[in-house]
Amino acid sequence: MKDLILVIAKALVDHPEDVRVEEKADDRGTVYELSVHRDDVGKVIGKQGRIAKALRTVVSSAAADSQKRVIVDIIS
């Protein structure tokens, strides 16, 4: 799952070397914290959060087989 988030995020940003994903276990489920260069935050979020919502949809669909709850947080 971490690799999927990295591939998608690196394709969206101008500074792919600054993309980082940290995986943490939480009481909510598995939380993936995505951090990008400060100039690329808007590109990952998108207009009215559409790209962030699409990213979260793809990741949750990929995790549907494992029956785990997956959360993607974007850290600026």
Rank of each mutant, 00 (worst) to 15 (best):
Lys24Asp: 09
Leu34Asn: 01
Glu17Met: 09
Leu4Ala: 13
Asp39Asn: 12
Lys53Glu: 11
Gly29Phe: 07
Ser35Asp: 05
Ile75Phe: 02
Asp40Phe: 01
Ser60Ile: 08
Arg28Ser: 14
Lys10Met: 05
Gln67Ser: 14
Gly49Thr: 09
Ala63Ile: 08
Ala11Leu: 10
Ser66Cys: 10
Gly46Asn: 08
Thr30Val: 15
Ile45His: 00
Lys47Gln: 13
Ala11Lys: 10
Ile45Lys: 00
Ser76Cys: 08
Thr57Gly: 09
Gly49Phe: 07
Arg38Glu: 15
Gly49Pro: 06
Ala63Arg: 06
Arg28Lys: 14
Ala25Gly: 13
Gly49Met: 08
Ile51Gly: 00
Gly46Trp: 02
His37Glu: 11
Arg50Thr: 11
Arg28Ile: 11
Ala11Trp: 07
Ser35Pro: 03
Leu12Glu: 04
Val21Gly: 04
Lys43Thr: 00
Arg28Ala: 14
Val59Thr: 07
Asp27Tyr: 09
Gly29Cys: 09
Pro16Val: 05
Asp27Thr: 12
Gln67Val: 10
Gly29Ala: 07
Ile75Trp: 04
Ala64Trp: 08
Arg50Gln: 13
Lys53Gln: 12
His37Thr: 06
Asp65Phe: 12
Ser76His: 13
Thr57Lys: 11
Met1Trp: 08
Lys10His: 05
Glu33Asp: 12
Ile71Pro: 03
Val58Cys: 07
Leu34Trp: 02
Ala25Gln: 14
Thr57Asn: 12
Val58Trp: 01
Glu23Ala: 11
Lys24Phe: 09
Val7Cys: 10
Asp14Arg: 10
Pro16Met: 05
Lys47Gly: 08
Leu12Asn: 03
Val13Asp: 00
Gly46Ile: 05
Arg28Asp: 14
Leu34Tyr: 01
Gln48Lys: 15
Leu55His: 03
Asp14Ala: 12
His37Gly: 04
Gln48Phe: 11
Ala54Leu: 06
Arg50Lys: 14
Asp14Tyr: 08
Ala9Ser: 13
Thr30Lys: 14
Ala62Asn: 12
Val72Ala: 03
Tyr32Asn: 02
Pro16Ala: 06
Ala62Leu: 13
Lys10Thr: 00
Asp3Arg: 13
Lys43Cys: 02
Asp18Ile: 04
Ala63Glu: 11
Arg28Trp: 10
Pro16Cys: 07
Val72Gln: 03
Leu55Val: 08
Ala62Ile: 11
His37Lys: 08
Lys2Met: 05
Ile51Cys: 02
Gly46Arg: 04
Val41Leu: 10
Ile71Trp: 03
Ile8Pro: 00
Ile51Lys: 01
Ala54Arg: 00
Arg20Gly: 04
Lys10Glu: 08
Glu33Val: 14
Leu55Gln: 01
Asp3Tyr: 10
Ile45Gly: 00
Ala11Ile: 07
Lys43Trp: 01
Thr30Cys: 09
Asp27Glu: 15
Asp26Leu: 05
Glu23Lys: 15
Val21Arg: 04
Ala54Trp: 01
Ile45Val: 15
Val19Phe: 03
Glu23Cys: 10
Ile71Glu: 00
Gly49Ser: 11
Lys2Cys: 03
Tyr32Val: 05
Asp26Gly: 07
Ile8Tyr: 03
